[in-house]
Write a protein that binds this DNA or RNA. Structure first.
Length: 849
RNA sequence: GGGGAAGUGGCGGAAUGGUAGACGCGCUGGCCUCAGGAGCCAGUGUCCGUAAGGAUGUGGGGGUUCGAAUCCCCCCUUCCCCA
């Protein structure tokens, strides 16, 4: 291979800075050059090495939608900065990239532009890879994965089979979320913003279909509990997951239907209100509804009502403002404790998915039940009074009383406070055999079937004699047929008869393939593991590689995945740990959720016309400018306000750094390379510069490493750059310190703006890549100040500054300030009550007058 | 309705009990220039003042403290999550 040494690069313009000739900052050529060198030298390739401390830095991989957008640019600028920083810190850094390449947009684009999803996707992958390389991202590109590659989805299918064999993948008929626009079902997590499809925003409806599910609820408790083991996650995300999992403790109890051999199960978290039950309500989809309808005089009405409710979407039925509607079945249930008869209703606000799909109605103490009861004239019976001693009246109250209080009308429990009643009544209930204490979760099993083409086929067949038969592992992958006709509004796989028709792996008889494909969130639930050994053909990943690299030390992505990808990936990791394939039970140790990129007060979007194209920014200003601006404009967790003028400011800064080196290149190259120690420096200005250099190192390191606040890290580098610009070296020691400062600036700028850093590093005559340099440590002796500024305060208000030697004692500091004529003038005629001395900072004189 | 996060110059943002506004953008004046939207120098919270200096100032109100953007209580506004 013909390798150009990076050293030869500077020869071409070694005349710069020596005559009148000025070399401009040609970012375009510089960036191309160094990207090529990095690639040729494999600078960012990495292997597992147990003798080195590893760091796994990962950014959420993109969907190959066509081109990078500003959100990607921000995500990858942050990740690359961290990866480069940690590499310079001496870690063995795994920093890979890939593509979440299955998904609906490929099909939509194919239909719209008459192309094939496969071609569309692969073209986009190649284009986006080019873009990522243009950003100067330090990925080990040999490890790239694409989830639509049979080498990858073979293992996605293999993982499905593992779930299946453990009984964690199952088929069931259930009312499921259906997006009419995407023509497919959706998991609960993928229904957002009060009942809308996460991808296209269409209002989701319910359909009763037989589908594949993963039993994520088996892991609900662990998914909840181990959030406590994630101190490196934002509280916000953990809270969102806790809410999503929605653990509640309560009692499951049955009500018998009077005169029939039917019982209706309900679940309540408020067993303390059992004496307040005045009706029972069932979800319209409840399996018992049709049976009750057949027994009821209102049968026709009930069936019509249930059919009508099925059309409405969930959010319309549950949001607080919606009218509560229902139909009386005319039948009664028997109260398990009192033996009283309570009417049974079918109501639109009861959801089949939550609890048992039926509730005990307690209008006095549940606002939804209250509204329903008032609408239909159902009695309201108070069983809890406020703790202040007032008594509620069920006939006149205008809202449910949902707070804690004191039990009443509750037999032997009267007088108990709510909290006590809850636990005692639950035990009492169980002891009498009326019900069972139970933990309930809001989290539902994960619906993974998709009625779409561009996804990983679910590896099962349906055999007339054997039923559902999984494909044997040795026959994987079940390849997605590429030769299909794309069509509007359906799954093209349904028409590939030669693919569907197959033989049963079990009996050899005729069988038909499953034509549904897997939710793409399955594909992205384990990609971080594949990156540890993407080449292996022996399994989804090599166990020893995963053991070395996992967990991901730093994960970076958008908060929109809080209750989607981030829950699924945790679930997969726990399942794989149970299979003995990974040693960790949590995949991501530290999570950074970056803010959105906004412009003119709104999220960038085509419809708002406020989109800034990354390519255009890189063409005009270069990747280094784009990265610098993104990191400087805002702390990573907050939204970033895009500003064209801010970008120019960032570009100007890089120009200033460039000139700093270029204008002094001849002298800099001649300057001593060994730093001059503080004790050998006498000139105050030189000592000051030396101090600034080392405090910059200290503060930049802390900002990146501990605070994860990259905007202030950049600000520190700008301060150093300003200090260097204002410094005029006069002798050899000055030049030595100046060179130390310039080199420090370049090294510390490397993770942020790597190309210009490489170029300047090279121009100064250094060997090798600055990307492979060690991150500097501050020289403690250079951090000590000679002089300090102390402030005089009078009653806490700043009055005057004093300069004094840094090593002065607190007592002397106080005495000097108090003895100063200016201080005496200020305190003249005032009563000094007290003097507070804060060493190194201030003296506060408290006076009275 | 419940929970969470936030509110600081003209703008993006610094400062987590000790000199509010680092750094950058913008703006003003000047230098350089054929010219400049390049570069350099100076200034830039508000009010009074030529200045020195003073007053005031971190959404509003109260409190703790020698001292509060920072801690506590109440209120207002915005955003997010859950109902």
């Amino acid at each position: 291979m013909d390798i150009i040494s990076p050293d030869s690069a500077h020869l071409a313009h070694s005349c710069a800075g020596q005559g009148g000739f000025r070399m401009a900052y040609a970012f375009d050529a510089i960036e191309k050059k160094w990207q090529q060198y990095w690639e040729e030298h494999g600078v960012f390739n990495v292997e597992a090495d147990p003798s080195l401390q590893k760091f796994y830095c990962l950014e959420m991989f993109p969907y190959p939608s066509g081109a990078l957008h500003m959100g990607h640019l921000r995500n990858y600028s942050i990740g690359d900065m961290l990866a480069r920083f940690l590499r310079m810190k001496g870690f063995n850094v795994l920093h890979p990239m890939g593509y979440d390449a299955f998904g609906l947009p490929a099909e939509n684009a194919a239909i719209k532009y008459g192309t094939h999803p496969n071609k569309w996707t692969w073209d986009n992958i190649e284009h986006m890879t080019t873009q990522l390389k243009r950003m100067g991202c330090s990925y080990d590109w040999r490890r790239r994965v694409e989830t639509c590659n049979p080498d990858y989805y073979r293992w996605t299918q293999w993982l499905f089979l593992q779930f299946y064999h453990k009984g964690l993948a199952y088929r069931k008929k259930a009312p499921v979320n259906w997006c009419e626009s995407c023509k497919t079902v959706l998991a609960n997590e993928q229904v957002i913003n009060e009942g809308h499809c996460w991808r296209c925003g269409t209002s989701v409806i319910k359909r009763n279909l037989e589908q594949w599910f993963l039993r994520i609820t088996d892991y609900a408790q662990e998914l909840l509990d181990s959030l406590d083991d994630l101190p490196g996650w934002p509280e916000r995300v953990k809270l969102m997951q806790r809410n999503w999992i929605g653990r509640s403790e309560g009692v499951r109890l049955s009500f018998c239907v009077e005169g029939h051999d039917i019982s209706i199960e309900t679940f309540t978290t408020r067993i303390d209100t059992i004496y307040g039950v005045t009706f029972l309500a069932l979800a319209p989809e409840h399996p018992a509804v049709l049976e009750l309808a057949s027994l009821s005089e209102n049968g026709e009405k009930i069936r019509n009502f249930a059919a009508e409710c099925a059309q409405a979407n969930e959010s319309e039925r549950t949001i607080a403002g919606t009218a509560k509607r229902g139909v009386d079945t005319g039948l009664s249930a028997v109260h398990p404790v009192t033996g009283e008869r309570v009417p049974i209703w079918v109501a639109n606000y009861i959801l089949m998915e939550y609890g048992t799909g039926a509730i005990m109605g307690v209008p006095a103490h549940d606002q939804r039940d209250f509204e329903f009861a008032r609408t239909y004239g159902i009695p309201v019976r108070v069983v809890i009074n406020p703790p202040d001693g007032t008594s509620l009246d069920g006939d006149t109250m205008d809202a449910a009383y949902e707070q804690d209080g004191i039990q009443c009308n509750s037999g032997q429990f009267d007088g108990l406070p709510t909290r006590d009643a809850l636990s005692r009544m639950a035990i009492w209930f169980e002891e009498n055999g009326w019900g069972k204490r139970e933990v309930n979760y809001r989290l539902r099993d994960w619906l993974i079937s998709r009625q779409r083409y561009w996804g990983a086929p679910i590896p099962v067949v349906y055999c007339e004699s054997c039923g559902v038969v999984p494909i044997p592992e040795k026959d994987l992958p079940v390849e997605l047929p590429i030769d299909v006709k794309m069509k509007k509004g359906g799954n093209p796989l349904d028409e590939v008869e030669e693919w569907i028709a197959t033989t049963c792996p079990s009996c050899g008889g005729p069988a038909r393939r499953e034509t549904d494909t897997m939710d793409t969130f399955i594909c992205s639930s384990w990609y971080f593991l594949r990156f540890t050994s993407p080449w292996t053909q022996e399994g989804p990943f090599r166990k020893e590689d995963a053991a070395y690299w996992m967990p991901v030390d730093q994960y970076i992505g958008g908060i929109e995945h809080a209750c989607l990808h981030l829950i699924y990936a945790r679930f997969f990791t726990k399942f794989l740990a149970d299979l003995g394939l990974v040693e960790v039970r949590e995949p991501f140790t530290n999570l950074l959720t970056q803010g959105m990129v906004i412009k003119d007060g709104a999220k960038m979007s085509k419809s708002k016309g406020n989109v800034v194209d990354p390519d255009e920014i890189i063409n005009t200003y270069g990747a280094d400018t784009a990265r610098l601006f993104i990191l400087f404009a805002s702390p990573p967790e907050k939204d970033l306000d895009w500003s064209d003028q801010g970008v120019e400011g960032a570009h100007r800064f890089l120009h200033r750094v460039w000139r700093l080196v270029e204008e002094h290149l001849g002298d800099l190259r001649k300057a001593p390379r060994v730093p001059c120690s503080m004790e050998n420096l006498q000139k105050p200005h030189t000592r000051d510069l030396k101090r600034i250099i080392h405090s910059t190192i200290q503060r930049v390191t802390r900002d990146i490493e501990e605070e994860r606040q990259f905007n202030t890290a950049v600000a520190r580098l700008m301060e150093l750059s300003n200090a260097l610009s204002n410094f005029s070296p006069e002798n050899e020691k000055d030049w030595s310190v100046f060179r130390e400062g310039v080199q420090t600036l370049i090294v510390c700028l490397t993770p942020i703006a790597p190309h210009i850093s490489e170029e300047l590093w090279d121009m100064l005559g250094n060997e090798g890549f600055v990307s492979s340099e060690n991150w500097p440590s501050p020289d403690e002796s250079a951090l000590v100040e000679d002089e300090m500024t102390v402030v005089l305060q009078v009653n806490g208000k700043v009055r005057q500054e004093f300069k004094m030697p840094a090593d002065i004692s607190p007592d002397e500091m106080r005495e000097r300030i108090l003895a100063d004529p200016a201080t005496k003038r200020r305190l003249d005629g005032k009563d000094v009550v007290k003097v507070i001395t804060v060493p190194g900072k201030l003296v506060n004189v408290v006076v009275r007058n």
